[in-house]
């Protein structure tokens, strides 16, 4: 049942095994009592996975960066088409509503229309974009953007990057370069909720996208945190700027065990 809702098979098996372990030796009589005991144990197991070990308060971290007189830098990474650029603009909308000064850095210099896409969002959100067109080295554009932001009193830089498959070595190397050169505060990995994929590298937090397209097949939230050990910070639930939510672990568990 968990698998049908997109929890990865290995993860579901481990979860069941741990529930079975916990229940072994316990005295319960009657079918209903057993059923309830299993359900409670399952809920506990899922909640444990979904609740982040350390909390990640972006606004507080921004304050820390402000005190150090430098911009807070977030890099958005993920496979092609997961929703990096859209999510970046949603986060921008939210940060702006917190009265922060945000700069967007157009570091997807590969995909057609990527720069114009970001400029369109920026115009609607009334924030500036730092861009150098196409086919340039993304890492150095990011570096220049951060420098520019520092000099011009920006609180946050949101860096858009080109989509890439994890096993595409040259592209992953280019991404490592961008991350290493710029030492961002947060590397936000974008994951589509519908998808059952392997662990991404070098990330600090996960954002699940297109949560609105999957009905109750919310298992990816579980598998993803389980595999990466990283918290799901935010969830994308639609195509407009306000469609951004915090992960509600209780709801996920309820949907999974329904």
């Amino acid at each position: 049942m968990l698998v049908e809702k997109n929890v990865a098979v290995e993860c579901a098996e481990k979860l069941c095994a741990s529930v079975a372990n916990g229940l072994e030796g316990k005295q319960v009589s009657g079918y209903n009592a057993v059923k309830n005991a299993v359900k409670t144990a399952m809920e506990d197991g899922l909640m444990r996975i979904l609740t982040p070990k350390q909390s990640m308060d972006i606004l507080r971290q921004v304050k820390v960066a402000q005190n150090e007189k430098r911009p807070y830098v977030v890099v958005f990474v993920g496979v092609n088409g997961v929703g990096k650029s859209t999510s970046l603009s949603k986060v921008c909308f939210w940060l702006k509503s917190q009265k922060l000064k945000v700069l967007l850095a157009a570091c997807d210099t590969f995909r057609s229309g990527a720069v114009e896409q970001l400029k369109t969002h920026a115009a609607r959100l009334e924030v500036p974009v730092f861009e150098k067109g196409y086919n340039k080295d993304a890492a150095s554009i990011a570096m220049d953007a951060v420098k520019y932001a520092g000099q011009n009193g920006f609180d946050v830089v949101l860096v858009d990057t080109a989509g890439r498959m994890q096993d595409n070595e040259p592209l992953m190397r280019a991404l490592s370069k961008l991350v290493n050169l710029n030492n961002p505060d947060l590397v936000q990995a974008l994951k589509e909720t519908a998808y059952g994929q392997g662990p991404p590298r070098l990330i600090d937090g996960i954002m699940l996208t297109k949560f609105d397209t999957i009905d109750d097949k919310v298992g990816a939230a579980v598998s993803m945190t389980y595999v990466t050990g990283q918290p799901v910070l935010l969830v994308g639930v639609g195509q407009t700027y306000t469609d951004l939510k915090k992960l509600n672990a209780k709801n996920i568990v309820k949907l999974l065990l329904r």
Partner: peptide, 16 residues
């Protein structure tokens, strides 16, 4: 007409 930059994307692809 919905996605930001959609026409630019298609236009740049088509031109290439």
């Amino acid at each position: 007409t919905f996605r930001a930059g959609a026409f630019d994307q298609l236009k740049q692809n088509a031109t290439k």
